[in-house]
Design a protein around this nucleic acid. Structure first.
Lengths: 167, 167
DNA sequence: TATTGTTATACTCTATAACTATA
DNA sequence: TATAGTTATAGAGTATAACAATA
């Protein structure tokens, strides 16, 4: 594609003169989206390693923890808490159910909805997974002190739920 | 809360008794991956809105900013900085080139590689986009003070590049 | 009429292997 | 042989519309 060459045809500019090495001190690092993505990539990489043995994906882990904390939670509520759409929850719960970690129980009150419960196997697994993920977070952020790690968590919380108390 | 108590088959437990409302105070909120994902979802949503008019995706924006800062950057270097794989860079640059925002210039030194440069249109656009994204970050984090916003950015940087100076 | 869960579908993002052309 | 870029492909993740059963 011919460059718009109002004055200096870009083709003639620097060819030999440019140093193209590792890039830092970038303006991009001032952008929140970039920083969040890079940090998440790292934290998720550690998480994946920690969960590999149990073949658990991030969304599956989150679902297990929520179900543990709120036995009988509905799929709609699960979708809201995970910030995913109902169709994904169906797949998610299908997987957990087929692996014997959770069960759907039809609600007597509202027979359209299900309550989701952990099985014994699910309860046992989630205990293990929580410990693993906690350790994974620590190793992923070993450059931070405990205080800094809590600061980071608090700031992130205030980004995604603005009215949350600082705690 | 009548959680499965050692003996009772989970199916028989609570059916009517469970309150399934909005969920907070969750253990999940202590997990870095969850917090990062939620924060990123929010920041990216604002970013998407800000860029909608220009039909620019996050990776495209990042690429434009990098090319602006490092004219003649190679695709391999771009891949490394964006933390994406070389095949994605091909598509990325194809899009930018077809939209007249950037051009590939074959390197004389190493004729396997290209230097990527912004066109005039690309240079003009990236100035606009940087201002928009800066504003987008501010509105996405309006619950934070300037100091807190910089703290967050600094902490994130130290997560994804552990040896970086605190600045 | 509205809501819960479901199916189907498509689109983006991401990862991998294999190819080409240069070095 | 090694590297830069490319092609092809497949798998996640995500979003949307439309449907069935129930309220």
């Amino acid at each position: 594609m011919p460059v718009s060459d109002k004055k200096t045809p870009i083709h003639q500019v620097m060819q030999e003169e440019v140093e193209t090495g590792p890039v830092d001190g970038l303006i991009l690092e001032e952008r929140l989206g970039y920083a969040l993505r890079r940090a998440q990539l790292k934290v998720f990489k550690h998480f994946d390693e920690a969960m590999r043995e149990h073949d658990i994906r991030p969304a599956q882990f989150s679902a297990l923890v929520i179900i543990e904390g709120y036995p009988g939670v509905t799929q709609a509520s699960l979708a809201q808490t995970l910030a995913i759409d109902p169709p994904r929850v169906v797949n998610l719960v299908n997987t957990l159910e087929s692996r014997g970690l959770a069960v759907r129980v039809r609600s007597k009150r509202d027979r359209r909805s299900y309550g989701i419960f952990l099985t014994r196997a699910g309860e046992a697994l989630v205990v293990t997974l929580k410990a693993l993920s906690e350790q994974s977070d620590l190793t992923a952020t070993q450059g931070l002190s405990d205080i800094e790690r809590r600061q980071l968590l608090a700031l992130l919380r205030r980004v995604y739920s603005p009215q949350a108390p600082e705690k």
